[in-house]
């Protein structure tokens, strides 16, 4: 290799230039990340106050669960582990049957019960529980203005993401708690949209209320 020092200098300069340009692109990107926000910390990150003293120890988090595909694991042992972890954090969990009952309750159509989809734009538009509000917690500023008044007015809120080991519903629920939404009204549907669609339940595509079932 000729001129190793020059090559090294070229690599360093090139790395700095492309990474710097990457930050500019991120700033212009419609889905760009906030650089200063701790995206995985919620306003309610604290010891699980609602967990009973004899609650089982929290099962391993997603990063510790070995090699299980999130969608494939939407049911069974993994879903049960996730539900246990959520309960240990003081969160309420609903099953498919309970989520379905809430959806089919006339109170849902009246806006007293809400579904909240914690996934990103593309996933939400591809299919969500009919009437569900979107709350992409990585870009909360896009949704919070419409979502928070609806949350405060609702009696029951069911938050979901894809299901299985997807953490977004859990983090979004904690975010909403931190924004003052009554924790007693918030419930996490662990099975998520993967389980919902697998059960043949209705899905709406496009924007909320688009009616494109």
């Amino acid at each position: 290799m000729k001129e190793p020092a020059r090559t090294l200098a070229e690599a360093v300069l090139l790395g700095a230039a492309t990474l710097g340009a990457g930050l500019v692109v991120n700033a212009l990107h419609p889905d760009g990340l906030s650089l200063t926000r701790d995206h995985f910390r919620t306003a309610t990150d604290a010891p699980p106050a609602a967990a009973p003293p004899d609650a089982p120890p929290a099962p391993p988090g997603p990063s510790e669960a070995a090699g299980v595909a999130p969608v494939a694991a939407a049911t069974g042992a993994v879903a049960s582990e996730v539900a246990d972890r959520l309960r240990a954090r003081g969160l309420q969990v609903v099953s498919l049957a309970e989520a379905r009952a809430i959806f089919e309750d006339p109170a849902c159509a009246a806006g007293a019960y809400l579904f909240i989809d914690a996934r990103g734009d593309a996933e939400y538009r591809a299919g969500h529980v009919p009437g569900a509000y979107q709350f992409d917690r990585y870009h909360p500023e896009r949704h919070i203005e419409a979502l928070l008044p609806a949350c405060h007015a609702a009696l029951k809120l069911v938050v979901y993401c894809l299901g299985g080991e997807c953490e977004d519903s859990e983090l979004a629920t904690l975010d909403l708690q931190g924004m003052g939404v009554d924790p007693q009204r918030l419930q996490v549907y662990v099975g998520g949209l993967a389980e919902w669609t697998a059960a043949g339940l209705p899905v709406e595509t496009g924007a909320r209320g688009g009616g494109d079932d």
Binding site: G15, T18, L19, G20, A21, G22, L23, V25, N26, G32, L33, S34, L35, T36, R37, D38, H39, F40, R41
Partner: peptide, 15 residues
């Protein structure tokens, strides 16, 4: 130190 992870995630793909 979330900034370090955020900057990496934001800058690396374009690089």
């Amino acid at each position: 130190a979330p900034v370090l992870m955020n900057v990496t995630a934001a800058a690396l793909p374009f690089a």
